[in-house]
Design a protein around this nucleic acid. Structure first.
Length: 462
RNA sequence: GGCCCCGUAGCGCAGCUGGUUAGCGCGUCGCCCUGUCACGGCGAAGGCCGCGGGUUCGAGUCCCGUCGGGGUCGCCA
C-alpha cells in the first residue's frame, strides 16, 4: 500500500551521499477522496454523505447482530458500524492491525464517539490479515514492559499515546529550527565518520574505514566551531554516538540539537538576580558567589520568576546540600536543585553556571578575570541536566596553552586547533538531547520509551 | 566497575518454610448477546518455570555459574 517516493535525489555524487531527503506517502485513491478519521465529525451536518476512510483495524467489538469497528489512521480513530451479514462474517478475516480501506456513508448518532460514524460500510483489506501484536494497542495505556515494547517497536509506536510522544519530539525539532532560522542561523550537517576522537578520547565507537581506523562522531562541535567562521550562526540536528562504559546507562545514538553562535562573551542570559555575588563558604574565589542556599527562604514568594533562575555552581551545591568543593552536580544534586527551582521560583528550569575550568573540557573558555572558573553552564529541567553549554576558546594560542596546562600532547589535536589560526570569532553554544527533553517532559520512566529505535549495549534491532 | 531487584503461557503477574495435576487477569480460538466505546456471558487451547550444573527421595522454589532485563552509586563530558 505505501509507496516510497524519494525527493531530492538529485546529487549524483561519487562516494557516499552526504544527505538525502526522503518521504513516504500513500498513493492517491482512484475512487472517493480520503477522509481522515479526525475529520469525520465535520460531517455532522451532512449525514448520508459517501466517505472513504483508510487505516488500521484498531479494535473490533462484535455484538450479536452488529459490530463496531474502530479504524485508526494518522489523525485518530473513527467508528464504523457493521450490520450486514456478509460484512460481519468478513470481519473474522480482518484482525486488529490489518490495513483496510473503508467506504461507507456518514451517519449522525449521539451514541457515536464524536457524534458521527460510518454506516453500511465496505471493508477491503489492503494487506494480509495482521498477526496478533504483542502489545494490546487498543488499551488506553500500554501494559507491556519495556523490553517487550522495544522488541515490538514498529507496532508499539502505533499506540496513540506513543504517537503523541513522538509528535511532541517532532514539534520540538520544528520549534528549535524555526526559532534559530528566524534568528539568522544556518542549518548545517557535519560528517558522522571522523578521523580522530578529539572530544573526549575515551568512550568512542571505532569503525573500520577502508582498512584504517575511524570513529563515529561523538559531537558535531568541532564542525560547528569551524562553521562559525563561515556563517557566524550555525546549528545542527543530528545523531551523536557516545559509548558509555557503564553497563546500564549505555545509550549510544540519540538525536541532539546543537547550536553554536559567534559573539558570545557574556554569561548565558537568564534571570541572574539570584546569582548575586557574595563570598562563599569554600574559600575559593568565584566570580559570582551565590547566596542562594542561605537565602532560599527569603527568596520564597519574591521569586515568581518569569524567566529562568540562574545559580552559580557554589550556590547550587549549597542548595543541594553538597560539599562545597564538588566540581559538578551529581544526579541527586541536580534533582535537589530542580526541586528548589520549582518551589522557590515556580520554574521547571534552572541554569547552573560557572564550573571549574579544570573539570571542563580543555576547549572551555575561562573567565578572563578568574581563569579557574569557566564560562560554562548546564540547564537543568525538572531535576535532570538537559542542556550543557559554554563559551569555547577561539584563539589558537589559547588552545595550545590549554592543552599544555593539562599535559596533553598537541599532535592529536592538530587538525582541530589549526582551524583557529584562521580567524574564528569568539563563540559559544550548547547542545540538548531530544529524547532527554521529551522523555522528561512527558514523564517516562525510561528514556528509551521516547526513542524511536533505541540502541544499547545489547540491542541492535529493530 | 560496586551494590540491590527480576527472568514462570502471546502480554502483565501470583506461586509461602522444597511435596503429588504450576495458577490468576488480559489477549487468542469457539459459542451466545441489536449501541458497544478497556463491551458483556459461557467454554477451550496455550508452559523444557531464561540456560547449565549441584544439593535432595523429590527443585519453579535452595546453592553455584552463565546469559538477559531493571534500579542505584561510582567513573566519564
Amino acid at each position: 500500500m505505501w509507496w516510497h517516493r524519494e525527493l531530492a535525489r538529485r546529487p549524483r555524487l561519487r562516494g557516499n551521499r552526504p544527505l538525502e531527503v526522503t518521504c513516504m506517502t500513500p498513493p492517491p485513491s482512484p475512487v472517493l477522496p480520503r477522509t481522515l478519521a479526525a475529520d469525520l465529525s465535520t460531517y455532522a451536518d451532512r449525514p448520508g454523505t459517501p466517505v472513504r476512510i483508510d487505516g488500521w483495524v484498531h479494535r473490533r467489538r462484535r455484538l450479536s447482530g452488529l459490530a463496531f469497528v474502530v479504524i485508526r489512521d494518522r489523525s485518530g480513530t473513527a467508528q464504523v458500524v457493521v450490520r450486514d451479514e456478509a460484512t460481519l462474517a468478513a470481519l473474522d478475516g480482518l484482525p486488529e492491525e490489518t490495513t483496510v480501506e473503508v467506504t461507507g456513508t456518514t451517519s449522525t448518532n449521539p451514541q457515536a464517539p464524536g457524534g458521527v460514524e460510518v454506516v453500511d460500510p465496505q471493508l477491503t483489506a489492503l494487506t494480509d490479515a495482521a498477526a496478533t501484536p504483542p502489545i494490546e494497542l487498543w488499551r488506553p495505556k500500554i501494559t507491556a514492559g519495556l523490553p517487550t515494547m522495544l522488541d515490538a517497536a514498529p507496532v508499539t509506536w502505533r499506540h496513540p499515546r506513543q504517537q503523541a510522544r513522538w509528535h511532541l519530539a517532532a514539534a520540538s525539532l520544528h520549534g528549535f529550527r524555526s526559532t534559530l532560522d528566524a534568528a539568522g542561523f544556518t542549518e548545517v550537517h557535519s560528517p558522522k565518520i571522523v578521523e580522530s576522537a578529539t572530544e573526549s578520547g575515551a568512550s568512542v565507537f571505532e569503525i573500520d574505514y577502508f582498512g584504517r581506523p575511524a570513529y563515529l562522531a561523538q559531537s558535531p562541535q568541532f564542525y560547528k566551531q569551524v562553521l562559525v567562521g563561515v556563517f557566524e550562526r550555525v546549528y545542527e540536528v543530528g545523531p551523536v554516538f557516545t559509548r558509555r562504559a557503564a553497563r546500564h546507562r549505555a545509550a549510544p545514538g540519540g538525536v541532539r540539537l546543537a547550536r553554536r553562535r559567534a559573539r558570545v562573551h557574556r554569561r548565558p542570559p537568564g534571570r541572574g538576580r539570584c546569582s548575586s555575588c557574595r563570598g562563599g563558604g569554600d574559600g575559593r574565589q568565584h566570580p559570582r558567589q551565590s547566596r542562594i542556599g542561605r537565602a532560599a527562604a527569603r527568596h520564597r514568594g519574591a521569586g515568581r520568576a518569569r524567566g529562568v533562575p540562574v545559580a552559580a555552581l557554589p550556590g547550587a551545591l549549597e542548595i543541594a546540600g553538597a560539599p562545597a568543593d564538588e566540581p559538578d552536580l551529581s544526579p541527586a544534586h541536580e534533582r535537589a536543585v530542580g526541586a528548589w527551582a520549582r518551589e522557590v521560583h515556580g520554574s521547571d528550569f534552572v541554569v547552573v553556571e560557572g564550573y571549574p575550568t579544570a573539570h571542563r573540557a580543555f576547549y572551555s573558555h575561562p573567565e578572563p578575570a578568574n581563569p579557574d572558573w569557566s564560562r560554562s553552564f548546564d540547564l537543568i529541567f525538572r531535576g535532570v541536566e538537559l542542556v550543557s553549554g559554554a563559551q569555547r576558546l577561539h584563539r589558537y594560542g589559547d588552545y595550545v596553552q590549554a592543552l599544555r596546562a593539562r599535559g596533553l600532547p598537541l599532535e592529536p589535536y592538530a587538525a582541530y586547533i589549526d582551524a583557529f589560526k584562521s580567524g574564528i570569532p569568539p563563540h559559544g553554544g550548547f547542545a540538548i538531547g531530544l529524547e532527554r527533553w521529551t522523555g522528561r517532559l512527558v514523564g517516562v520512566d525510561n528514556i528509551r520509551e521516547v526513542t524511536l529505535f533505541p540502541r544499547d549495549l545489547h540491542r541492535l534491532a529493530p
